[in-house]
């Protein structure tokens, strides 16, 4: 076919995106500039109300911190697993990748539910700790931030591991051998050779985990409960419980802007680090 006309094949999808993706997002921005929940009086009232309330900043900060904590925890245990994967024999690698990808095919709701069974009052952790006599009363692990971060670490782990493994398995093994032959310890090789070279994968993983954990509505509400308030819960309350759509629009734009600014800052850093590596 005439090459000039080939791009027209993208038109149907472009049309779908214009009408059911861009138009709704524009309307969301429009709705946020109305003062009342009947959406009749235009104005900046809801923005002023949300941005003038110190509580809003606490919720924004808590949401971002939840993302940061989850990212740190997934890096702390995910990166070593990726290193072990790298050193494993092909057969072990096959098993490992199966274990890593499988949770991705498992509904987030199931993974969240699993943590209720693990962390609940009569859950595994409490049963074991009480039987070996460490505690006499069950600990409250659900509805705490610690419990939520532990759960999200497992729930988001595949998103960290896949980009990491993808980048690491393309590393030239000679680099590590050269580093060892020149007398560097394994730690030194890790921090001066492997970590810098795997930076693009690490950044991509952090980006995905951050974006996913800050917006994980089900996990946040079920494990965090109603006492831990994050932006997604606020959006849900304002839109489907209180029916204040303009305020819900304000909060969801805030969520969008805060997540995307962290994500673009990270990907800028990622691009810079890979540019540095390639000279």
């Amino acid at each position: 076919m005439r090459k000039a006309a080939e791009w027209q094949l993208a038109l149907p999808l472009a049309l779908a995106f214009a009408s059911i993706f861009l138009a709704p997002l524009l309307m969301l921005v429009g709705v946020s500039f109305f003062n009342d929940d009947k959406i009749t009086q235009p104005g900046f009232g809801q923005w002023a109300k949300f941005l003038g309330d110190p509580f809003s900043y606490k919720v924004i900060a808590d949401t971002m911190l939840l993302g940061v904590k989850t990212v740190c925890a997934t890096v702390l245990i995910g990166y070593p697993l990726a290193l072990v994967y790298l050193d494993a024999s092909p057969r072990v690698q096959k098993v490992l990748i199966f274990i890593i990808v499988m949770p991705l095919l498992l509904s987030v709701v199931v993974r969240t539910f699993a943590w209720i069974v693990v962390l609940g009052r009569e859950g595994v952790v409490n049963t074991v700790l009480m039987q070996i006599g460490v505690i006499s009363e069950p600990l409250r692990l659900l509805q705490t931030e610690l419990g939520l971060v532990i759960s999200l670490t497992q729930i988001e782990m595949p998103l960290m591991l896949l980009p990491l493994i993808s980048v690491m398995s393309r590393l030239d093994p000679n680099m590590r051998d050269a580093s060892a032959a020149l007398g560097a310890s394994r730690w030194r090789t890790l921090f001066t050779v492997i970590v810098p070279l795997s930076m693009p994968g690490l950044v991509a993983g952090c980006l995905l985990v951050f974006a996913s954990s800050t917006t994980a509505f089900i996990s946040q509400t079920v494990i965090g409960g109603v006492r831990l308030i994050y932006l997604p819960l606020l959006i849900w309350q304002q839109s489907l419980v209180v029916f204040n759509w303009p305020l819900a629009a304000v909060v969801s734009i805030t969520l969008l802007v805060s997540v995307l600014s962290v994500v673009s800052a990270l990907s800028y850093l990622g691009r810079r680090s890979s540019g540095y590596l390639h000279g």
Binding site: P80, M102, A114, S185, R188
Partner: peptide, 27 residues
């Protein structure tokens, strides 16, 4: 250094695998 590397990295990797698999088995 090599022993500590093996212990720390191996230990954390085992912890990661345990955290990935255990909840699924328990459910």
């Amino acid at each position: 250094a090599d022993i500590s590397y093996g212990l720390v990295i191996g230990g954390l990797a085992v912890l990661a695998l345990f955290i990935i698999v255990a909840p699924v088995v328990i459910v």
